[in-house]
């Protein structure tokens, strides 16, 4: 049975949260993990919608350090307040 966008977004959020401070994850890492976790119940399109949901909800943000990552929102290292 196909998973819902919300379910996948939640599972992705958990991955990002668990990896926080240990490893920066890329969009493709999230998609690959979901395929491992849910097999046929997800496809790439669903995973992309889930990432969109994850970002639009504000629970995660895109970051860039020589490549683009998806992380929990945090204060920027280089920022000046």
């Amino acid at each position: 049975m196909a998973k819902s966008v919300e379910e996948v977004a939640d599972a992705m959020y958990k991955l990002v949260k668990d990896a926080d401070g240990l490893k920066k994850l890329k969009a493709m890492d999230l998609i690959k993990s979901m395929t491992e976790l849910y097999g046929d119940e997800v496809d790439k399109k669903l995973c992309k919608s889930a990432i969109k949901e994850l970002i639009n909800s504000g629970k995660c943000v895109y970051t860039y350090f020589g490549g683009s990552y998806i992380e929990l929102p945090h204060r920027e290292g280089a920022a000046n307040d």
């Binding site: 639009n56 895109y62 970051t63 860039y64 683009s68 920027e76």
Partner: peptide, 20 residues
């Protein structure tokens, strides 16, 4: 200094973060 987080809501590109 190279920023890496700032952007507009929902997009992951198009904004280059800079701080002096």
């Amino acid at each position: 200094k190279h920023g890496g987080i700032v952007g507009v809501m929902g997009y992951g590109g198009g904004v280059i973060g800079r701080y002096n």
